[in-house]
Every structure is written in C-alpha cells, then in structure tokens.
C-alpha cells in the first residue's frame, strides 16, 4: 500500500471512531447500514491484521430487527450522553488533576475532576491553531470525541512525530476508561466500541513509534 493511502485510511478511522461516539443520527445510521465503516476497517486491516471488528458493530445488526435508529439513540443516551453519561469520555477525569507541584488543592493529584492540566493543554492547542470547538465542550476540551478528531487532523498533516507526541500524552488513558466502563456496566454496544478504539490506539502508538525509529535509522 502506498503511503498516501495509508495516511488516508488512518485519518478515516479516526473520523469513524469520533463519529461512532457522537449522538447517532439518520445519516450515520444509514451509512452503518450500508457497511461503510466495515469497508474502512477492512482497508485498515490490510495494514494491521490484529484487531477484528466487534460483532455487535456488524452492519447487519443495524436493522429493523436489531438496533433501530431509535434504539441506538436510546443506548447512546443511556451510556454516553453529554450531560449525565454513565461514564465520562474525558481525559481529565481519568488523570491526576494537575502535575503542578505547587498546587495546594487536596485533589491536585486526585482523579475524577474536570478541567485538569490535560484540558488546559488541549485548549492551548486549539488556541494555537485557531481551532474553534463548540461551547458545550468548554468544560471538556479533552473529550475523546474531540481528541480523535484532532488526531485525524494531525494524521492529515502527515508529521509522524507530532502524531506520536499527541497520542502518547493525550490518548494514554483509554485503559482506565475501559476499566471504568466495565465497572459501571456500560452497554455492550459501547463497551465493545471502547475496547475496539483502545486496541486501535495501542496499535497506532506502536506503529508511530516504529515508524519514527525506522526513519531515524
């Protein structure tokens, strides 16, 4: 496969995942029904054969008999909705609030709080680039949906080192997320999706690390 195709497909996967975590709508439902996501994933698997797509995300499941659009929306609302989700898809929630040694807040090193250093760094990145994010993300510029999309942008830009830097500092919390999802009994549809994303990110990290090493030698 050519480098350009590889880049393109990786970008697509990030967009796909970001989209799957968002609130379902008719458009994406139809695309899933058509199996667009499976096509993308097949393409990607030509490069990295390790991760199978979870069965529950097979396009056949997105039918009148199984997951209707209405039901999908309900599942999303129960699991990931923005305001009262069962689990938070937010980096700060899973990491120490700040790495600032002089912070005197008792929860400085605790987890579970919004707008930690991680969020502030994301905000800084958006500002540097003149990127705007919707106002309802103000308390969570480090939301996974945004981070996956941001990663797609970096992939498009083509600089592997930047991608590696981002993935290794801002997407290293997915294990905790999966653990939390398990503990809170997240619906299978989304639990499997999170595992899927986590495995993909792990593979990506290895891939980027190796590519950079290769380039160096």
């Amino acid at each position: 496969m050519k480098n350009k195709d590889l880049k393109n497909i990786r970008e697509q996967v990030y967009i796909l995942f970001s989209n799957l975590l968002q609130k379902p709508n008719k458009n994406i439902y139809d695309e899933l029904k058509l199996g667009r996501h499976m096509e993308i994933w097949e393409q990607y698997r030509k490069i990295s054969n390790t991760i199978p797509m979870p069965k529950i995300w097979n396009s056949k499941k997105f039918s009148e008999k199984f997951i209707t659009l209405e039901r999908w929306k309900k599942l999303w609302k129960k699991s990931l909705n923005f305001d009262n989700p069962r689990i938070y898809l937010i980096e700060s929630v899973y990491k120490p609030w700040t790495t600032d040694e002089s912070c005197e807040m008792p929860f400085a090193k605790e987890k579970g709080h919004l707008l930690g250093d991680w969020a502030h760094h994301m905000k800084y990145l958006y500002e540097e680039l003149g990127i705007e994010v919707p106002v309802n993300f103000a308390h969570c510029p480090d939301h996974l949906v945004l981070q996956l999309e941001f990663m797609s942008v970096l992939v498009k830009g083509g600089d592997l080192e930047k991608q590696y830097s981002f993935i290794s500092t801002h997407l290293d919390w997915l294990e905790c997320l999966v653990e939390a999802a398990k503990k809170k009994g997240l619906t299978k549809l989304y639990y499997d999706l999170l595992i899927w994303i986590k495995k993909y990110i792990d593979t990506e990290e290895d891939f980027l690390e190796n590519s950079i090493l290769d380039k160096a030698t």
Partner: peptide
C-alpha cells in the same frame, strides 16, 4: 486538619 491538607498538598 483540612487547612493543613490543602496547604501541604496531601492526599485526602
């Protein structure tokens, strides 16, 4: 106790 915890960055 609590002021001290905050001042000295103590775990809860």
């Amino acid at each position: 106790r609590v002021a001290c915890q905050n001042e000295n960055e103590l775990p809860v």
